[in-house]
Design a protein around this nucleic acid. Structure first.
Ligand SMILES: NC(=O)c1ccc[n+]([C@@H]2O[C@H](COP(=O)([O-])OP(=O)(O)OC[C@H]3O[C@@H](n4cnc5c(N)ncnc54)[C@H](O)[C@@H]3O)[C@@H](O)[C@H]2O)c1
Ligand SMILES: NC(=O)c1ccc[n+]([C@@H]2O[C@H](COP(=O)([O-])OP(=O)(O)OC[C@H]3O[C@@H](n4cnc5c(N)ncnc54)[C@H](O)[C@@H]3O)[C@@H](O)[C@H]2O)c1
Lengths: 211, 211
DNA sequence: GCTCACTTGTGAAAAGCTTCACAATATTAG
DNA sequence: CTAATATTGTGAAGCTTTTCACAAGTGAGC
């Protein structure tokens, strides 16, 4: 059943899951690939291909059972368990993320916050005490953090990534604008908002020069 | 010269530009596709293919002139002009973005901040006065904002996107977890951090079930 | 000038992803 | 039970992106 699944498929699964949640709220019991496609911004054929990589979840003639597919998608995405997250960098982005209620709602629990700034270390964010980043390894190990969010300056990111992985972290969400080198098998997701803005800049410029 | 350029190519161009800036700082005058690839997390052949879509910028046997290529990439990405940005939603993400110095450094100037909350409207963020979102159209039009950042709740995003585009906005960076429908030719970039976390969750779960 | 080491630019091959098209299957109505 | 209608699951086709491989160009050393 499982060969390599593409990044794009995974992103779409997340969209489908959102769509299903919305549908469940509105009381629908089943949904067609057509409708799921509409909400996920893709095509019906793509929806079916995506899902078929993991099994056969629909009924011909009828569509997919909303609740059941929702549950299946959660399981596929690994969202049937809760994830333990350590946040490194208690700055502007770090604090926005920390206060973002969707993470916890989605199964991602922030179990620790770390920072290098002595002025921040020791202060409290709600129930969480900000720890010195020198305790990164111990924190990841003892609190069994699965995921690490790096919201630190670019020059600190590589070192922190290595240390976190060495201590047992299994995946990284990286806000620093550097290409992290990590051991094979450790997934890294980069978020770079400037790159997104640059892509907009390119698209507009391109359109202009063509007009 | 210009057929359709892929999203992935554009993202890599951004990486190359960062790499070139770093190289310029370290005094190097030329750089090979090999070295650029290393820093951009890709392969030498990919670098050359990416660049060749826009012209021939290298010298065989030597590589690329750092300063020159940097300048060329800026022009390709449309970063030789400054972009005027309106930020809609002065919440947690909005304020982190507003204070992020890299945007301005990169040519993206925040010319207005808008919010629906009467408690926020009228207060100042540095030199900027927060405006009521009812003035969105007028603001975009009068301040000639090119780009709009939507850092608002999902249910407000579609309406605001339509209004912004109607008033002349040419691109959107969207933090709300909805698939925006906009007129053809208006680029939209979605940032969804929960989706990134879910992709990590999937990758780890997948790896486990395979082990 | 000639050779050598190096590196680009690019057509062609390979790999990956999306769309198409339709047989297979389920439900409903008569 | 049969016909009509709906919708999935999937091989094959089509398209896009990446990788390969190498001719062609460049500068340095002698
Ligand atoms: N603010 C934004 O909107 C934004 C947007 C995109 C990307 N980013 C990126 O995210 C990262 C963080 O940005 P920010 O705006 O939150 O910066 P910030 O300066 O507000 O916060 C960075 C935090 O990291 C801490 N820190 C520095 N070195 C550290 C280390 N070695 N170990 C642990 N903590 C350390 C600092 O004390 C600070 O609290 C940067 O790489 C930035 O480029 C930020
Ligand atoms: N905080 C995060 O880390 C984070 C992460 C990922 C995504 N997001 C998404 O980004 C968006 C903003 O998140 P946030 O955490 O900053 O939320 P927030 O509640 O802190 O801020 C939202 C702001 O939007 C304003 N607003 C509400 N309706 C509006 C309208 N119609 N017009 C203009 N302004 C309006 C509110 O007054 C508030 O100031 C949300 O869609 C959220 O899901 C946030």
């Amino acid at each position: 059943m499982s060969r390599r699944v593409s990044e794009s498929t995974i992103r779409r699964l997340s969209y489908y899951l959102r769509a299903l949640e919305a549908l469940e709220g509105s009381g629908a019991a089943t949904v067609s690939s057509e409708e799921l496609a509409e909400r996920g911004g893709t095509t019906a054929a793509q929806v079916r291909k995506d899902l078929s990589q993991f099994g056969s979840f629909g009924k011909r003639g009828l569509g997919y059972a909303v609740k059941e597919l929702e549950c299946t998608l959660r399981r596929i995405l690994g969202l049937h368990v809760r994830w333990r997250v350590a946040l490194v960098g208690a700055g502007r982005i770090g604090s926005a993320l920390f206060e973002y209620p969707n993470f916890a709602q989605r199964g991602f629990d922030c179990v620790a916050v770390l920072d290098a700034d002595p002025a921040k270390v020791g202060s409290r964010w709600g129930p969480i005490l900000i720890r010195p980043v020198s305790e990164l390894e111990r924190t990841v190990r003892e609190l069994e953090a699965d995921l690490v969010i790096l919201a630190v300056p670019p020059e600190a990111a590589q070192d922190l990534a290595e240390r976190a992985v060495g201590a047992g972290a299994r995946g990284i969400l990286n806000f620093a604008a550097v290409q992290l080198r990590v051991p094979r098998g450790i997934p890294v997701k980069d978020v770079n908002l400037v790159f997104e803005m640059e892509a907009l800049s390119f698209a507009i410029t391109q359109a202009d020069s063509h007009a």
